[in-house]
Amino acid sequence: MVYKFTILSDEVDDFVRVIKIDADATFYDFHKAILKACGYKDDQMTSFFICEDDWEKREEITLEDMGKSSSEEDVFIMKDTKINDLVEDERQKLIYVFDLLTERSLFIELSEIIPGKDLLKAEIARKEGKAPIQTVDFETAMEKTLKNRMDNDDLDDSLYGDKDFNDDELDLDGFNISEGNPYDDSNY
């Protein structure tokens, strides 16, 4: 059985990759196919996440065992986990985090299941647009995040308080402050 995955980015609008891969292949094989399709180097820690329909992350499949999970939690390693162990249904959503420091990701959906066929190695079936750059400087990413927050119309001065604050609305009794009287340290 062959799985056909469609891969998109929230950073680059015209970026699309479609990868066909055997359902019995490992997540490591899929990882290598994504690196090749995007022109990325294999020098970063990455993870796949199996997601709910609303992209909420569930199971994580890591490149290497980081020893961070509790004994109750299953640990999935890319080289040891077949894709069809965790992905069975069309429209299944996955996230591929390719830059863990800044949590930059690709969004993946199983767009088609092709029964009765096998693939020895993954194929790039469609390649459009330029891939997002693989890594960004952490400070640059933080500046971009802050700029986006400042440019976002949903966030304004009212986030931190009413920009039309009126001094008359302040309850000085609640702070044990007398209005207009100079500080007298003899009371202390």
Results as ranks from 00 to 15, higher is better:
Phe15Arg: 01
Ser69Asn: 12
Leu110Tyr: 02
Leu101His: 12
Lys121Thr: 15
Ala23Met: 03
Tyr188Arg: 13
Lys79Glu: 12
Glu59Leu: 12
Asp153Leu: 11
Ser70Arg: 04
Leu101Met: 09
Ala37Arg: 01
Lys57Ser: 06
Ile177Asp: 05
Thr46Gly: 00
Met1Val: 14
Leu94His: 05
Leu63Met: 11
Leu101Val: 11
Thr6Val: 04
Asp137Phe: 00
Ser186Asn: 10
Phe48His: 02
Thr26Gln: 07
Gln134Met: 09
Thr46Ile: 07
Leu35Pro: 00
Asp65Asn: 14
Ser69Trp: 01
Phe98Val: 07
Asp173Leu: 09
Lys117Ser: 09
Cys51Arg: 09
Arg58Ala: 06
Arg149Ile: 08
Asp42Gln: 07
Ala122Tyr: 02
Asn176Glu: 15
Met142Glu: 10
Asp168Tyr: 08
Asp42Tyr: 04
Phe48Gly: 03
Phe30Thr: 06
Leu101Asp: 15
Gln92Ser: 13
Val75Asp: 10
Phe30Gly: 08
Glu73Lys: 08
Lys82Asp: 02
Ala33Ser: 14
Phe98Tyr: 15
Lys41Gln: 10
Ile113Tyr: 04
Ile113Ser: 03
Ile77Trp: 05
Ser70Leu: 08
Glu52Lys: 15
Val75His: 01
Arg58Leu: 15
Thr102Ser: 14
Leu120Ile: 14
Leu35Tyr: 03
Asp151Val: 02
Lys82Gln: 15
Thr62Glu: 14
Gly129Ala: 07
Ile50Ala: 04
Ile77Val: 15
Arg104Lys: 11
Ala131Lys: 04
Asp89Ser: 12
Lys163Gly: 15
Glu56Met: 13
Val12Phe: 00
Asp185Asn: 04
Arg104Leu: 01
Asn84Val: 14
Asp42Thr: 00
Asp14Tyr: 03
Leu155Lys: 06
Met78Leu: 10
Thr102Tyr: 01
Gly67Leu: 01
Glu11Ile: 04
Trp55Gln: 09
Phe27Pro: 06
Asp162Ser: 11
Gly39Ala: 02
Asp157Met: 08
Glu109Val: 13
Thr135Cys: 04
Glu139Asp: 13
Ser9His: 07
Asp162Cys: 06
Gln92Phe: 01
Ile77Glu: 03
Asp53Lys: 13
Phe138Ser: 11
Tyr160Glu: 07
Lys68Val: 13
Phe175Gly: 14
Gly174Asn: 08
Val87Cys: 10
Lys127Glu: 14
Glu112Val: 03
Glu56Leu: 13
Tyr3His: 04
Ile95Met: 15
Lys117Thr: 12
Asp85Met: 12
Leu120Lys: 15
Ala131His: 02
Leu120Thr: 14
Tyr183Lys: 08
Glu179Leu: 10
Leu35Lys: 11
Phe76Leu: 09
Ile124Ser: 05
Tyr3Asp: 01
Thr102Met: 06
Asp14His: 07
Asp22His: 10
Thr81Tyr: 09
Ser178Gly: 08
Phe76Gln: 08
Gly67Gln: 03
Lys32Gly: 00
Lys121Met: 10
His31Met: 04
Ile177Thr: 05
Glu112Arg: 11
Ser111Arg: 06
Tyr188Gln: 10
Leu155Glu: 11
Thr102Phe: 00
Glu59Ser: 11
Phe49Val: 00
Gly180Lys: 09
Asp80Phe: 12
Lys144Trp: 05
Met45Lys: 11
Phe49Pro: 00
Glu179Thr: 00
Asp151Met: 12
